[in-house]
Amino acid sequence: MSAATIQAPSRPPRTKVRRRRSGAGIHIALITIVAVGLLPYLFVLTTSVKTNEQFATSYWAPSFPLHFENYGTAWNQIAPFMLVSVVVAAVSIVGIVALSLLSGYVFARFQFPGRRFFFTMVIALLMVPSIASLIPLFVMMRDLDLLNTLWVLIIPRIAGGAVLGTILMKTFIEGIPQELFDAARVDGAGAGRLFRSIMLPLSLPVVGTVSLLTVIGVWNDFFWPLLTVTDNALKPVSVGLLFFRGQAGTDYGAMFAGYMIASLPLLLLFLFLSKYFLAGIQGGLPGSH
């Protein structure tokens, strides 16, 4: 005891000094990296509330008064694109969740010949890059006369999203204890009731992940809408921004305000659902949970 009390006072100061030294260096390095990474976005944010004159006179520093009307101008031009993206994402989420809940449930809870084969067929599609089937899919959509409709954006997304959705759902449903299902069955619940009263409420986390993935996908999809939708009223935000940039010309304030508005939905999702957001980006890769 006495040895410990004697040693104790002499040691802590040393380690503290060491910690502070290395700690400060680490903090400075990390702050520098964070700053470099965020600087372009901060520049855009400050410029988005400047008029062109303010931009010309004070290029770097924020300048007052802040012109929030830039956001109004940008919103008027960007709102239609945002609406298209929201509609596409919402309809796709409903379709993907319905499809993958149903098929994930079937794969996880039923034994039938060919189960393994069908599931392998689903997994195999993970390996088909979207870019590889872009051209034949385009020709197909043209033959179906679906170009320049919302369906051309929605249907392939549902088909693509249902692949990962089914796999995630199956894995998740397999993790639900069989006892729950047995208990419900004993109480006289049929397959439909099991689905509605047990599966649906329990699978909400996966529904969340799938929804987030879909929103991120819609907001980032570029070539498909670029090629299939030429009607400006039906362009989603990713492609609409290009058109918007052309229109804004050299009105940088409004242009950057538009970029910020277009990013806002994903930023909010990231802020409030960070865990799901990262899980979604990593798509169930090792270390994602």
Partner: peptide
Amino acid sequence: VPMAFPGV
């Protein structure tokens, strides 16, 4: 945070 911005 930059991951949260759309690629476009």
